[in-house]
Write a protein that binds this DNA or RNA. Sequence first.
DNA 1: AAGTGGTCTAGACCACTTC
DNA 2: AAGTGGTCTAGACCACTTT
Lengths: 232, 232
Amino acid sequence: MSQALYQRIAGSLRARILSGGHPVGDVLPSENELADAYRTSRVTVRKAFQILESEGLIKPRQGKGYIVQPPRHSTFTLIFGAEAEQGAYRDLEVSIVPPELPVSRMLALGDGQLVISIRRVLERGGVPAAFDEKFIPYERGKPTVEQELEHAEFPELFAGRFATVSLRTEMSIRASSPPDYVSRALDTGEAQLLTVERLILSPEGQRIGFSREWLTGAFGPLRAVSGPPTGG
Amino acid sequence: MSQALYQRIAGSLRARILSGGHPVGDVLPSENELADAYRTSRVTVRKAFQILESEGLIKPRQGKGYIVQPPRHSTFTLIFGAEAEQGAYRDLEVSIVPPELPVSRMLALGDGQLVISIRRVLERGGVPAAFDEKFIPYERGKPTVEQELEHAEFPELFAGRFATVSLRTEMSIRASSPPDYVSRALDTGEAQLLTVERLILSPEGQRIGFSREWLTGAFGPLRAVSGPPTGG
DNA sequence: AAGTGGTCTAGACCACTTC
DNA sequence: AAGTGGTCTAGACCACTTT
């Protein structure tokens, strides 16, 4: 099971870039040069270049060549959701209520519009680790709350109304003091907690859901990574 | 400037998937079918499929076809660093000191190993927004602190010693109480702050730098997004 | 056996950059 | 004019899945 040729070419170029053999700004050997060197076709060499391009290592410039890019350490990938599965959710309350002002603003609701509110606590090892609160505009004739609750994950909650692939999520992370009912449920007193807010957007940009989570120390930190892939 | 054929094919398929025309688990038309339909070659159709694959919308299975994937809303892209440029750093202190225990642990330092400590405050509109503290193992004969300070961004600080493309960063986000010297500098009193820790790793996995940042409300929330690209 | 994706070839023409 | 990447063709053989 030897590697494909284009993989070997990509690996060889990657190694040379990462080891500093081709510093940032350098122009790599051209497609034709490499095709000759490896006794292969240009298409195969291009495939190798496209791998490195997708890794952000190089960028093509027509008429010039492939140029080694500076590393982008400002884009991080957040690992989120995996940890939440280590624990159990305890449902606190499902209700149809008039929204608080910040919620109403976030969902851009009209006057008198009610929302479905779902409150849950994540427990880990018997200790409350997070308080989770979701808000969905309430509309008669839409799937019932009971049905929706079968899906734990937020975006999937809208599967009946939208193609879930098409939904976008905007996340906002800060430290803030939770309201009383949250600090009581989490037993955290006055402490400020890591707060994660999520806004679910339809393909048309409509705000179709909003959630707030307060994470205690028991939840652990959020983690993010950047840089070249670990396997490479 | 009409779009390339493979772009049009990808766009057409993407639209059908996002609008729910091809639900999750569906098998898309085969490469040969589409090549016939668009009166083009298989290579061009493949290129279209590869775009959708890179977007995470589909996954190929040899002998079967391209299958529509469930959306992955658990991977978020953190937008970090861009906001920091809206403001000015004020240097507080550069010193060579014995590390505190947590720093020594994070960098896996031996006994007696000293570290270079760099403390800065980010001010935005005259208000302190963040406290920034970096630790680098001190070694004689390596680039001087003065030289290193010319580079503001953390990973770039190691440009002399490593090919910066090859560095990885692990980030950890939580809410915590800052030490006294931080809350004094930021004038935040007892409040817990958003805390961002970064560990810089060499290609070999060696821990070559560690940073801590405490962000006040003036810094604003961290933001992350997931879902299909905005332009698509 | 037939159909699918995975890899690869040996050309072609175009737009762009450099000399 | 020569070289570069960008797009595209019309084939080929392979490994895998389904019938």
